[in-house]
Structure formats: C-alpha cells, structure tokens
C-alpha cells in the first residue's frame, strides 16, 4: 500500500509542476462545457429539462478529466519510445498495477484542479444545479468504476501501441468511440430507439452517461452502479490477460 501511495504521489507531483498552464487549459475545457450548455438551452428553451441538461453537460465535462482525458495510452507508448518500458517488468509489482497507480496520481490531480473548478464555474456562471441530497453519495461512488473502466480503455490503447508500435490509430479509434458513445454532449436517450439501450449499457456510457445521469436524478443508482461494476470487473480481467500476452512479446523483442 505504501508503494502504491508513493507511485500515486509522484505522478500527482509530476502533474503539479504545470499548474499555471493547467489553469488556462481548464478554462478552455470549461468553454467546451459552456458550448454544450448553450446548445441544450437553445434546443430546450426555458424549461426545467433544459436546466437539468445544462447540469448534465457541465458534470460530464468535469468528469472527462478523470475518464476520457486520462494520460494517453496510460503512459505506455511514451515508455516504449524512451525505452523505459522494460523497467516495469523488473519491479516487484505487476505492470497493470504500476500503470494503474501512476495514472491514478494524475487522475487525482485532474479531479482537484480541473473537475472541481469546472463544476464550480458552472455553478457560478451557468446556473447549473447540485444533486438531491440522496444522490450525492451514489454519484461519488459511481465515479470510481467510471475511472477504472476509463483506465482500462486507455490501457488497451497502451497495450496495442506496445504490440504494434503504432499509437495514433488506436488512440483515434478509442477517441472516436468514447466521444460518440460516452454521452458527454449527446446522452444515450437521444440516439435512435433501436440502439439507445445498447449504447446506454456500453462500457463507454458507464464512464460518463451513468454518473452524470445519477447526478441529475434521472437514473436509479441501484441500476447504474451494478452495470458499471460489471464492466469494471470484466475490463480489469481482460487487461490482466492482455498484459500477460504482451509481456511475452516484449520479453522476446527484448523491450
């Protein structure tokens, strides 16, 4: 546990160095949220539903920083490039866990310095709402599987890049799916009826759609969180299997 904490801390501090730049970046991200809010207010007019959607969009935008915008390829491709990937195998901790703690550090940083400020800016300037008291705890709980799932998806991109030494294509395909299906601007409810429920139950929706819906009180946490947890377990198991196969190929190539 001590090792885990120190890995998280190092990666947190690494992010911390660029605080000034990140504040500017955070404002940029807030503008993206604001654009989404404008779109939904223009579509729904002056209705309670419009207020809820505004909140939904800002919460999603804030959550992107602990889901879709995690370090690309979970730092793995960077390590392939600078040749430090081999070091991950000589440590007494599995590659998956090491990556997980490393990425967790920047996720903690992102949550404190980007997610929370974006949400507060929304509260101050865009009149977004806060959850019903009963939904606060479920919302925070649902962030955890959302993060784990996102980590695994980024980790898959990393595994791909280690195996095929090409990162751009895998990253772009991941971005395409996550952007479209996670529901950060267009929730699953607005997709055509035939694919609506498939999308809502996809792992991508678990990273953004489910927590944001819980936040605005439009989803029963006793349905949402179990769905998320299932995906989290499945993806972690899949990650472990893939780690084993890639480890073999790296050892053969000699890192």
């Amino acid at each position: 546990m001590e090792k885990a904490l120190s890995l998280i801390k190092i990666s947190y501090l690494r992010s911390r160095v660029y605080l000034a730049g990140h504040v500017i970046n955070m404002f940029g991200s807030f503008i993206f949220g604001y654009i989404g809010v404008c779109v939904w207010r223009a579509l729904l007019g002056d209705t309670p539903k419009a207020d809820r959607m505004a909140t939904y969009v800002i919460v999603s935008q804030a959550l992107l920083w602990v889901t879709m915008f995690l370090p690309k390829s979970a730092y793995l491709f960077q390590k392939v490039r600078d040749g430090t990937l081999a070091f991950m195998f000589v440590r007494p901790m599995g590659m998956f866990l090491q990556s997980f703690y490393e990425v967790s550090g920047s996720a903690v940083y992102n949550f404190i310095y980007r997610s929370i400020p974006i949400f507060l800016l929304g509260l101050l300037f865009l009149g977004t709402g806060i959850p019903a008291p009963g939904m606060i705890l479920p919302f925070f709980i649902s962030i955890i599987p959302a993060y784990v799932i996102s980590f695994c998806l980024n980790y898959f991109v990393g595994i791909w890049s280690v195996k095929f030494l090409n990162f751009t294509a895998a990253q772009n395909i991941y971005y395409f799916l996550a952007n479209l299906l996670s529901g950060s601007l267009a929730p699953a409810d607005y997709f055509p009826d035939s694919i609506k429920s498939i999308i809502a139950f996809s792992p991508f929706a678990s990273t953004c759609y489910i927590p944001s819906k819980i936040f605005i009180g439009e989803m029963n946490p006793f349905v949402g969180i179990p769905v998320q947890s299932c995906w989290a377990v499945i993806l972690v198991l899949l990650s472990l299997i893939l780690t084993r196969s890639v480890k073999k190929s790296v050892q053969i190539q000699g890192g």
Binding site: I24, G28, I31
Partner: peptide
C-alpha cells in the same frame, strides 16, 4: 495550454 483555450475551444 493556451492553444486549447484560444484555438480548440
């Protein structure tokens, strides 16, 4: 970071 704010957004 300035790029994100002034161009991407």
């Amino acid at each position: 970071d300035l790029l994100v704010l002034t161009v991407y957004a």
